[in-house]
């Protein structure tokens, strides 16, 4: 069995662990022209620098707030949708739905950004027109601090839920049909079947994806925020990645960018490790 692992292991060591030497950049005032060894070693200066910037804590909070909401919504929505799709009988419609919900994944945020500005416009946007029929005043979704994070979460879930839905649907197929046959014989309702057969059957995958998504607690989605945010919502929408991007615009500061990346990795690592061991200790369940 080692033989099976070796090709992949070698590739990973070369192409993933090899470049990890570059993490040292986080502790340097790295200048590409000087390389790893001639760049000045400055210890934790890059980290200290980022912490010293005036908005760091606000940005960190924004990132966590947006990311956590995305993680939660990104779990609930696909699970629900895959259960609902599973309840569909007509194969043609079922397959069409599956295909269609995966479509937004292929559109880039550059394109969607333009579309969303139109859809959500307080004066002309279709969403606010609809709210108008319900007697609700127009809402400036992209321009107000108290709406912007939710707009991000909803549009992101909308774009990406098709992806996880596919995984859950695949998980559903691996549930042994004899369970359902037995349940029907016992007279269990559809709801009971879902509750006692389907959900437990999906549980390993649900736990796996939940754990993995915890690693994203500091990833609030650069492309999306970059294409949708604006100075008026910096306060609620500026996240770590957009912040690093703007620092880089003045002068590409590799040290700072790598330091921030390392910080994110360490936090992800911590989150995932903790949940891994919790699952193992409490539920005696190995996630991977």
């Amino acid at each position: 069995m080692h033989l099976m692992v070796i090709p992949g292991l070698i590739l990973v060591l070369i192409y993933h662990y090899g470049p990890m030497a570059g993490i040292t950049i986080a502790f340097q005032k790295f200048i590409p022209a000087k390389g790893f060894f001639d760049s000045k070693w400055i210890g934790l200066e890059n980290f200290r620098y980022v912490m010293s910037l005036p908005d760091t804590w606000q940005i960190l909070w924004n990132t966590v707030y947006i990311a956590v909401m995305k993680i939660v919504a990104g779990l609930i929505v696909p699970i629900t949708v895959s259960l609902l799709i599973n309840e569909m009988g007509k194969a043609l419609i079922k397959r069409s739905v599956q295909t269609l919900i995966y479509l937004p994944h292929f559109l880039s945020w550059v394109i969607l950004g333009g579309i969303l500005i139109d859809l959500l416009s307080p004066s002309q946007g279709i969403v606010n027109q609809f709210l108008g029929y319900l007697g609700i005043e127009p809402i400036y979704f992209l321009g107000l601090d108290n709406w912007f994070p939710y707009t991000l979460v909803i549009s992101d879930v909308w774009k990406e839920f098709g992806f996880s839905t596919i995984v859950y649907l695949a998980a559903l197929t691996s549930i042994n049909p004899t369970f359902y046959e037995a349940a029907i014989v016992d007279g269990a309702s559809r709801w009971k079947q879902t509750l006692y057969i389907t959900l437990p059957g999906m549980m390993p995958i649900i736990i796996l994806l939940t754990t993995l998504s915890l690693g994203n607690v500091l990833n609030a989605g650069f492309d999306q925020v970059f294409n949708l945010y604006s100075p008026q919502v910096y306060k609620s929408g500026d996240i770590i990645d957009t912040f690093v991007y703007r620092i880089g615009l003045v002068d590409a500061q590799y040290g700072v960018a790598t330091a921030v990346g390392l910080f994110k990795s360490v936090v992800s690592f911590f989150m995932i490790t903790v949940s891994y061991y919790l699952a193992y200790r409490l539920a005696n369940y190995r996630i991977f």
Binding site: Y49, L53, P54, D55, S230, P231, Q232, Y234, K235, D238, F243, R246, I247, L249, V250, D251, Q253
Partner: peptide, 23 residues
């Protein structure tokens, strides 16, 4: 070329400026 403080603080200043002007 950008001065040392421009490199370290330029993006914060730019952000502040845009934000304040917009508001």
């Amino acid at each position: 070329a950008p001065t040392p403080t421009m490199v370290s603080k330029g993006s914060s200043l730019k952000k502040m400026e845009l934000e304040v002007f917009t508001k």
